[in-house]
Design a protein around this nucleic acid. Structure first.
Length: 422
RNA sequence: GUGGUUGUAGCUCAGUUGGUUAGAGCGUCUGGUUGUGGCCCAGAAGGCCGGGGGUUCGAGUCCCCUCAUCCACCCCA
């Protein structure tokens, strides 16, 4: 076994696989652009407080999953465990706090010190979007519709969209009381985790998968019924706009998300092709407090896990768009021909034709095998005979056809017959 | 962090109750007459059997530790 594996929970993405990644990323750029979003690139690490305040100190993520370190200047920095907080921090430098709407998307690696499992890495990758600075139910709905559009573009079928409302901070207090009241009655029967959640965060009990808790979760009151008429009206508008946009969704009063900053609409998309970690995307409306800021930044957005999107695609046997033509392989017989090929390779590449040239002196048989292995669409063969007459042998690897031609016109010929310019 | 699983060639895996020079398929390389790939045939290279310790006359096989993998819980994307 190799001793050169990357650290736990990370992986190397080789070219063949990277093609699928790029497909997802390009789909994201294409679709998000259709909705007026532009890319924002923020650092992969931030001051630790950006996440502590932005995500919420009570969350699992902040408490035990962050990669935090001190830099040489004694600053406490943290590798970003999610994208939203850093984006908000960056947008603070704009006029977003004055009600001006900003639409941005991001993509890149995130880091969480969890135990790796199916669909979970320590370095994982997300694409996400944020609509910041403006509140309207239509924007919540548009964000969700954009997510579904993106999934469709990415070739991901059979996904399931669930939505819920978390209300506002004021809405939650009375609802929380009712829930605590309900679960307190059966405290001794709850699982250990839920007993702790009873005081720390009752909402999470609704999310619990332990069998012994299900009975009490099912009999729990629908928390949203305790929310204010305004909040419920807001949520109705989101649902109506979603229906109008043609989205299939399910309202799940028990959908609770693990980050503290959510208010009003929350949503999650799951896919059957994954495993225990079946959420491929999730998000919602949020109010985020950052260091030195009294007012929260408001917005709505989501993130999708690229690894999980790829798993979903794989379960569907989704193919990639047709590959372009292969490269041209330059075979040489002898050192003179090899040197000639080096110069020719440079000319062809500058003409936009991808070229792999053999640098070692070896048998033509071996070189043709190599050409086949790299899936070359043409092989150009050059030896002493050709050099003398300024010719070159051009072999079409697919048909086996072979023609001799002037070496000076080979570039034009290849461009006319190949499809590299497309 | 808690459980379980696995760890033998570049890859996928065999290795019987511990017993001589550790195997297969695929891949790679070389050949099958002069300068031609894919198919076929022949041959070759390539393994501190994850690492360390122990039991034994003898360990890839048994025991302990360690590292890593995969999966589940937790939580999330």
């Amino acid at each position: 076994m190799s001793k050169s594996l990357p650290p736990p929970g990370t992986s190397d993405i080789f070219p063949e696989e990277a093609a699928s990644w790029r497909f997802i990323e390009e789909s994201a750029i294409k679709i998000f652009s259709l909705y007026g979003y532009g890319e924002l690139r923020t650092p992969v690490f931030e001051y630790t407080e950006v996440f502590e305040r932005g995500i919420g100190g009570d969350t699992e993520v902040v408490q035990k999953e962050m990669y935090t370190f001190e830099d040489r200047g004694g600053r406490s920095l943290t590798l970003r465990p999610e994208g939203t907080a850093g984006v908000m921090r960056a947008l603070l430098n704009t006029d977003v706090m004055n009600g001006n709407e900003k639409r941005v998307f991001y993509m890149g690696p995130m880091f969480r010190g969890e135990r790796p499992a199916a669909g979970r890495k320590r370095q994982f990758h997300q694409v996400g979007v944020e609509n910041v600075g403006h509140v309207a139910p239509e924007l919540d709905a548009e964000s969700i519709l954009m997510l579904m559009h993106f999934l469709e573009e990415s070739g991901i079928r059979n996904s399931k969209l669930q939505i819920n409302t978390r209300g506002t901070a004021e809405d939650r207090k009375p609802a929380e009381e009712k829930l605590r009241e309900h679960f307190s009655k059966s405290e001794t029967a709850l699982c250990e985790d839920c007993k702790a959640r009873l005081s720390r965060n009752v909402w999470r009990i609704l999310d619990c998968k332990q069998p012994q808790c299900q009975e009490f979760i099912n009999s729990a009151p629908d928390a949203t019924t305790f929310f204010s008429p305004e909040t419920r009206g807001y949520f109705d508008k989101v649902c109506n706009a979603l229906s109008a946009g043609g989205a299939d969704f399910e309202v799940s009063p028990r959908l609770v998300r693990g980050l503290d900053y959510y208010v009003h609409t929350v949503f999650e998309v799951s896919h059957p092709g994954l495993g225990a970690q079946n959420a491929i995307a999730g998000g919602g409306r949020y109010e985020i407090f950052l260091p030195e800021n009294k007012k929260p930044v408001i917005g709505v957005g989501f993130a999708a896990g690229i690894e999980r999107l790829l798993m979903a695609r794989e379960s569907l046997d989704a193919g990639l768009p047709e590959k372009g033509p292969g490269c041209v392989f330059l075979a040489a017989l002898g050192e003179k021909a090899r040197d000639f090929n080096m110069a020719l390779a440079s000319k062809l590449r500058h003409a936009g034709i991808p070229v792999i040239a053999e640098v070692d002196i070896k048998s033509l048989k071996a070189q043709m095998r190599a050409a086949d292995r790299v899936a070359a669409s043409f092989a150009l063969i050059c030896g002493d005979n050709e050099l003398e007459k300024n010719l070159i042998v051009c072999k079409n690897m697919k048909t086996g056809e072979q023609t001799e031609m002037e070496s000076t016109s080979i570039g034009e010929f290849l461009k006319s017959i190949g499809r590299w310019h497309e």
